[in-house]
């Protein structure tokens, strides 16, 4: 039997407000996060919806729907998506190739260089440059120290710099 009380209504209203506030604040960033990593817009939409479905569920348990929390959920959702869709060991490569194919017209060599980075270094680099996270935010998100993040970012920048330089030299040589 359902018993609706003024207190219950108020609590539920507060929950909805918190949820809508979190949605308004974070939806676009999270959608873009998936758009960068999923195979297409439709999948990004699905994954984004899943994040907010989970967030709604968690909000019922009093979870604070901060940006970091939502991105943590987004990470897990993406990981599950990739895992469940992985029919072959090189799925990541396929996804990468698919994505880079979409943007190849813009600067394919950058995508190729990014694909050659170590996965954890690439992720820190992309979370920094594309998703706009700071080192301290990333340390929360990736559950490591800010120093480790900075070191990883430093290595990623160096490696990418080397790759882009090599690519440039190769192009000049071919001319």
């Amino acid at each position: 039997m359902s018993l609706q009380t003024p207190l219950g209504e108020r609590v539920e209203l507060e929950r909805q407000k918190r949820f809508m506030a979190a949605h308004a604040a974070c939806h676009d960033r999270i959608y873009r996060y998936f758009r960068r990593r999923a195979e297409n817009a439709s999948t990004a939409e699905d994954l984004c919806a899943e994040v907010f479905r989970i967030a709604w569920e968690k909000s019922g348990h009093g979870e604070e729907l901060s940006a970091m929390f939502l991105f943590g959920v987004a990470q897990n959702v993406l990981r599950n998506h990739l895992r469940s869709a992985a029919r072959s060991a090189n799925l990541m490569l396929q996804l990468q190739l698919e994505r880079t194919g979409q943007a190849r017209d813009a600067d394919g060599s950058v995508h190729e260089a990014l694909a050659r980075l170590k996965p954890d270094e690439r992720e820190v680099l992309l979370l920094t440059y594309w998703d706009g996270f700071s080192s301290s935010e990333l340390s929360d998100l990736l559950n490591t120290t800010a120093t480790a993040i900075r070191m990883r970012l430093h290595r990623a920048r160096k490696a990418l710099g080397r790759l882009l330089q090599a690519e440039q030299e190769s192009e000049e040589y071919q001319r």
């Binding site: 990014l114 594309w130 990418l160 710099g161």
Partner: peptide, 16 residues
């Protein structure tokens, strides 16, 4: 290391 131009290339290559 990454030059400013390289950084700009990364930003421009953002699929989103």
């Amino acid at each position: 290391d990454l030059s400013a131009a390289d950084e700009q290339r990364i930003l421009s290559a953002d699929p989103a």
